[in-house]
Design a protein around this nucleic acid. Sequence first.
DNA 1: ATTTTGTTTTAGAATAATTCTTGATCTCAA
DNA 2: TTGAGATCAAGAATTATTCTAAAACAAAAT
Lengths: 147, 147
Amino acid sequence: MQALPETSDAAMTRSGIRLTPQRRYVYEALMERRDHPTALEVFLRAKERMPSISLATVYNCLDALTESGLVRQVNCDRSSSRYCPNLVPHGHFFCKGCGVVFDVPVNPGNQPAWEVPSGADVSHVEITLRGLCPACAQKSTHPTSPL
Amino acid sequence: MQALPETSDAAMTRSGIRLTPQRRYVYEALMERRDHPTALEVFLRAKERMPSISLATVYNCLDALTESGLVRQVNCDRSSSRYCPNLVPHGHFFCKGCGVVFDVPVNPGNQPAWEVPSGADVSHVEITLRGLCPACAQKSTHPTSPL
DNA sequence: ATTTTGTTTTAGAATAATTCTTGATCTCAA
DNA sequence: TTGAGATCAAGAATTATTCTAAAACAAAAT
């Protein structure tokens, strides 16, 4: 009987990285709202709880969390990296209109097949969709009604 | 009867962007070796034919070509963007060992592989693989033999 | 308990890639 | 030919990120 949501402490302890207050706040900033904040946004959130934390430390912590596998770094084109604590395999959708990012479940069985040269060792697959989110798509098909 | 490879001029004219010598050299730098050069590498190649060209112009040209759809910009994590003139839909493989990038043919499956919220308008899908290319994979499984 | 050793944090400097600015040049159409 | 707008070059500026060095901290070994 242990399906209770894991605490950030437990997650970090399990992952093997040293538990520090800074890392805890950074991780919680990511877990509290499961959107896809940039390092700067994480910094601002962590600062609310620990005003002395520095941006460099947030970058350090995010790196440590990413390395240890507790967090995924998500990139789209060359805009700031975003961070995602959802560890279930999934893709990401980036809205060109409002910039929102959301997780996209992938059906493992239905994936398109890709052919890598024999001998290549694929360790990571990333699926990135771009387009308009429902809200922005609607706006663009309903231009200002010419009354 | 026109399956002959299209000239860069023809491609640009068709795409609707204005044909300038700089754009021509940039495009040819991409077509002559179909690897995945960075803007800097394109700059160096274009410079061989037009020593006066500037890096800023190469960036401008690559943007224009990308916008007009003649070229694709390809990103991996936060390393320099790379450019790819292969317009057939495909994914990209990035080798963590030697940094080589190559195209990966993708056979679209017949089942939807991902689920976007209804109303979202997906305009672009990108598939990125990371791992070790055959050469690097072999090196890493054959560590220095302890004689 | 104290020293040692290694890790983490911080602030600020440094870097790298890219974008922006400005004035000059070019191109096309009237 | 003469504008109007697009493009170019050079260098400055911006942005995100990484690096550096010193201080603080933590765990292990004495």
